[in-house]
């Protein structure tokens, strides 16, 4: 929507590759190549604050996940930043912290969902494989723009749509209790939600759970066995 509130993120995010050639190149380089791609990212404030053990382990863990097995390519757990850089509505923390806020936002039209699948080259899919999700969640002021939508996998493990929900809920809670700036929360989830999870929910990856055919039952459920991460140093 309005350009002054639109956030653009140009980082090459791990887990997605711009082209087949890039995939093949990274396949040849393996984890080292993936790490180089990660380190080449232009990251700003929030990520600089992640110079911690959690962030380091997130890189290592994520690098293992980007080894381009067929399943990793078919079921990406982070979006392609070129297609889905993230986009926000012109809203404030006061808007999003009103109970029922997300119900005021229109559902994504089917035509737009089809456009999202097509842009990611997904021609067919089975129920429970994906959902068209907001990279920056509605609860954090994300918009319905195609720049904020991607086919999020339920199948990847440990990082998948269920896990991202936990981060969305935690960031929303922190924004609404005044301990986290909304714009920063939006940057965190748009730049690398896996790292965001490790910083704000749990430094350890969630337990591996097979979710092949299970659709999400509640957008507001959180893995209860996970101890909450301490607040990062501002």
């Amino acid at each position: 929507m309005g350009s002054q509130h639109t956030h653009r993120f140009s980082c090459m995010t791990e887990g997605r590759f711009r082209s087949t050639a890039a995939r093949r190149a990274t396949a040849g380089l393996g984890i080292a190549g993936a790490l180089l791609a990660f380190l080449a990212c232009d990251r700003s404030v929030s990520v600089q604050q992640a110079q911690s053990q959690a962030a380091s382990s997130a890189v290592a863990d994520t690098a293992q996940n980007v080894v381009p097995s067929d399943s990793a390519l078919r079921f990406p757990f982070v979006p392609d930043p070129a297609k889905t850089p993230g986009d926000t509505l012109e809203v404030t923390a006061a808007d999003i912290c009103v109970p029922g806020y997300s119900k005021k936002v229109r559902n994504v039209p089917i035509a737009v969902k089809r456009q999202v699948y097509a842009s990611y080259g997904i021609r067919t899919h089975k129920p429970g494989e994906y959902e068209v999700d907001h990279l920056i969640s509605l609860e954090l002021g994300g918009s319905n723009s195609i720049r904020n939508l991607w086919p999020e996998s339920f199948r990847t493990s440990p990082w998948n749509a269920h896990v991202k929900d936990a981060l969305e809920n935690e960031l929303h809670r922190r924004v609404c209790d005044g301990t986290l700036d909304l714009a920063k929360a939006q940057r965190i989830i748009a730049q690398n939600w896996v790292m965001g999870y490790r910083m704000y929910v749990n430094p350890n990856p969630p337990p591996t759970v097979t979710t092949h055919t299970r659709a999400r039952t509640s957008r507001h459920s959180r893995p209860r066995s996970q101890p909450q991460a301490p607040a990062p140093v501002p």
């Binding site: 929507m1 039209p109 319905n144 195609i146």
Partner: peptide, 8 residues
């Protein structure tokens, strides 16, 4: 301007 994210 675009299919979504245009009306508030």
């Amino acid at each position: 301007a675009e299919a979504t994210s245009s009306v508030m």
